[in-house]
Write a protein that binds this DNA or RNA. Sequence first.
DNA 1: GAACATTTCATACTAAAGTATGAGCCGTGT
DNA 2: ACACGGCTCATACTTTAGTATGAAATGTTC
Lengths: 139, 139
Amino acid sequence: MFKIILRFGLLALLLGILLELSNYSISNRSYYSEFLVAIAAVGLVAFGFVLRKYIITKTSYLKDEFAPNERKIQLLQISSREMEVLTVMAEGFSNIEIADKLFVSESTVKTHVSNLLSKLEAKRRTEAIKKAKEYGIIK
Amino acid sequence: MFKIILRFGLLALLLGILLELSNYSISNRSYYSEFLVAIAAVGLVAFGFVLRKYIITKTSYLKDEFAPNERKIQLLQISSREMEVLTVMAEGFSNIEIADKLFVSESTVKTHVSNLLSKLEAKRRTEAIKKAKEYGIIK
DNA sequence: GAACATTTCATACTAAAGTATGAGCCGTGT
DNA sequence: ACACGGCTCATACTTTAGTATGAAATGTTC
């Protein structure tokens, strides 16, 4: 992360120097004045262009260090056990498989899922998963 | 599309004028010389920054930097219609809802889903959705 | 044009998912 | 102590989802 900031900082500095250079050459009416300005301009545009990509990829990188949206979880009144069910459910497991993983009965899982559906205002588990992801409460 | 090109063209022109202006003011050693250059530089970076977004979003089939993994789709022998079903299915819709959206019967959707499950080696639609996302064939 | 994949649909199943209701247990807090 | 929320489970039921099979209409490819 610091590496990227450093890289972009250096690039920005370089472009700044280029601009300054063109300033001086303009004052001196050098041959390369217009040329240098053009290069600096193109460089700056490219800088912004690439910057966006890095910002986007690096923020999606931060999604890997996934922190569930606790606010939303509390707002929807989703309990910790429901969260566990939701997480395993999103992995594509059936109710019985979830039950085995959490050491409870299928009935219990069904109850949790049913509660999750109403809390997430979803009609199906697929819809619940989609919404939960949109809310950032699961990855 | 032309609208966007026009907009960006105008913006680029404006930035060019700004640069030229700063050139002149530098020659004249005006108070605003450095200031103008800085504004032009920031403008150019912003230009590139926004440009990327527009290029990506306006090339429509590349939404949010997402390009479906065509190689994987072909490898798994998933047909175009199956892809459509998969996409809508991942949005959390039921078979009947998918059928309505694609103007086919529920039977047809069931067939497609069933084929998708075997092709994706999934036991349930939730698992299929998860795998499809991992493979990068849906977002 | 014959072979082949795709898309469509139906029928008849079985298997899951989801709903509704009631109930017992366990902590926490008033 | 008692109310409350969370977790557990069961039974009974309805609704979807998923499988199997067959079949017909399209394209596509060699």
